[in-house]
Amino acid sequence: MNTDIAPRSGLLRRTVVILATAVFLAGCATRPGPGSLKISQAAEDGALDHTIIVATTRQRATVSATYFTSERGDELNFATATVSVPPAHKPGQIEWPSAPPGDPATDFTLRSAGYLKDSTAFRAEIRKELARRKPGHRRAFLFVHGYNTRFPEALYRFTQVVHDAQVPSVPVLFTWASGGKVTDYVYDINSAQIARDALEQTIRDLVASGVERIDILAHSMGTYLLLETMRQISISPRGITRDDFGTVALAAPDIDIDLFKQQLQRTGKPEKPFLILVSRDDRALQASSLISGGKQRVGRYEHPEELAELGAIVIDLTALRGDPANHSKFAEIAQIGPNLRKAILHSQLGEETEAPSPTGGKVGDLIGRGANVVLTVPKAILSAPIQIFGAQ
Rank of each mutant, 00 (worst) to 15 (best):
F274G: 05
R238F: 14
S236I: 13
T241Y: 11
T229F: 03
A252G: 03
Y224T: 07
R242Q: 14
S279G: 12
D258V: 13
F274M: 13
F274E: 04
L227F: 04
D254S: 06
G246A: 07
D254H: 01
Y224E: 03
M221D: 09
L275E: 13
S279V: 05
G239T: 15
G246S: 02
I276V: 15
E271L: 12
E271N: 11
F245C: 02
L225S: 02
E228K: 06
P253Y: 04
R280T: 15
G239N: 13
V248I: 13
L250A: 06
I235F: 10
Q265W: 10
R231T: 06
T229V: 10
P237R: 15
R238Y: 15
I255P: 01
D243N: 14
S234P: 08
L275S: 10
Y224G: 05
D256W: 01
L225K: 00
I240T: 13
V278L: 10
K261N: 09
R238H: 15
D254N: 10
F245I: 02
A249L: 09
R242M: 11
Q265F: 10
V278A: 09
P273K: 07
T229E: 01
L277P: 01
D258P: 00
L226M: 05
P253S: 05
T267M: 10
E271Q: 14
A249R: 04
T223S: 06
A251H: 03
F274R: 08
M221V: 11
F245M: 02
R231N: 11
D244W: 08
I240P: 05
L264E: 03
M221H: 12
F260Q: 04
R242S: 14
L264G: 05
D258T: 12
R231W: 06
G239V: 15
P253D: 01
E228G: 06
F260C: 12
A252F: 01
D256T: 06
E228S: 08
L227E: 03
G222W: 02
Q265M: 14
G246H: 05
S234M: 13
L275F: 12
A252N: 02
F274V: 13
I255Q: 04
L277R: 02
R280S: 12
L259I: 08
